[in-house]
Design a protein around this nucleic acid. Structure first.
Lengths: 153, 153
DNA sequence: TATTGTTATACTCTATAACTATA
DNA sequence: TATAGTTATAGAGTATAACAATA
C-alpha cells in the first residue's frame, strides 16, 4: 500500500466515480443525467418551479426547458396551484413515477457495488461520515427520500 | 441525531456537494466545469487526445471541441508528436499552467472547508476509505497528481 | 412593486457518423 | 486495415435579459 490521496483529491475523484455510475444508470433508462435528477427530486412529492430551481441549483429559465423535455416524454405534468395562480406545481405521471422508482433502485444498487470491497465496519463508518457532511452542509434532497431540503452553501 | 441516509444517497448527495463546490470555484476563474477539469488533467503532464478521451470519459470528437475552446483562451496548445505524425500532444501554456495551479489550489481549499466539522480521526478515516474506493475502482487522475491513471469501470 | 414562470438568445457540452491522414 | 484526430450535425443543458401574469 502507501498511495494516499489528499482529502480534496479523494472527494473529487469519488464524485467523478459516482457521476459515472449515475450517468451509466441514467443511460440505461435512456435518460440524460439532468432529467434523471429531476425525476429523483420529484419521486416522493410534487414541487413548485422556484422550489425545484433552488434544489437543483439551476436558474428558473433553465428549469423551464428541462421540465419541458421531461414533460414531452410523458414523465411529468404541470399543474396549477389554486391558491396562487402564478405558481406551477410539477408532478410525476404514473409512468414517470415508475421510471423514477426503477432508476432510483437500479442506481442505488450500482452504487452499492462500488463499496462492495469495504468491510462492514468501514462501510458503516464511511456512510455515517458522508451523511454527516451532507447534512451539515444542507445539501438538498436530490437523491433519497430522507432528510435534507435546504440549499447548499 | 437520528437521521441517517443510506450509502447510495450519501454518495450521490456528497457528489452533488463536491460538484457545486467545484463549479463555484471554476466560475470564480471564469471557467466552465469541463474546461477546468481538462486543465487539471493537464496540470502535471501533457497528454494525447486519445489518452484524454479515456481519462475524461468523453468521445474524441467532443474532446476536439473542448480542446479548441480552451486553446482559444490561450491556456493550452496542440503539439505534434514526432514519432507518430497522426498523434497530437496537448500541453498547457504558461498562462494555462498558472490558471490550472491556482484553480487547483483554490478548489482544494474550498473542499477542505467542507470537511471542517469533522474530527481529525474521522477526517483521516474518511480520506483513507475514499482513497481506497477510488483506487479500487481505477478512477482516472482527474484531480491530484498522485496515483490512478486507469479508466473507471 | 415584487414574485412566478416563460421566451429569446447565445454558448458550452455531448454523441453519432462521415471524413482525412498516417501507420 | 486500423488508428489518431477532425468536421458536420443535432440535441441537451445552461445563463442572462426581457417579458407576461398575478400577487
Amino acid at each position: 500500500m502507501g498511495e494516499t490521496l489528499g482529502v480534496a483529491a479523494g472527494l473529487v475523484r469519488l464524485s467523478f466515480l459516482v457521476q459515472c455510475v449515475y450517468a451509466r444508470s441514467a443511460a440505461a433508462y435512456d435518460l440524460p443525467v439532468a432529467q434523471a435528477q429531476l425525476l429523483c427530486v420529484l419521486k416522493d412529492r410534487p414541487r413548485g418551479m422556484t422550489e425545484l430551481s433552488g434544489i437543483l441549483h439551476v436558474e428558473k429559465s433553465s428549469l423551464s426547458g428541462l421540465v419541458d423535455r421531461v414533460e414531452r416524454r410523458g414523465l411529468l405534468r404541470r399543474t396549477s396551484s389554486l391558491p396562487d395562480r402564478r405558481a406551477v406545481i410539477v408532478e410525476l405521471t404514473g409512468r414517470g413515477k415508475a421510471v423514477a422508482d426503477a432508476f432510483y433502485d437500479e442506481t442505488s444498487e450500482q452504487l452499492l457495488e462500488v463499496v462492495t470491497g469495504l468491510s462492514a465496519a468501514d462501510l458503516d463508518h464511511f456512510t455515517r461520515i458522508a451523511t454527516r457532511i451532507v447534512l451539515d452542509e444542507s445539501v438538498p434532497a436530490i437523491f433519497g427520500d430522507s432528510a435534507g431540503t435546504g440549499v447548499a452553501g
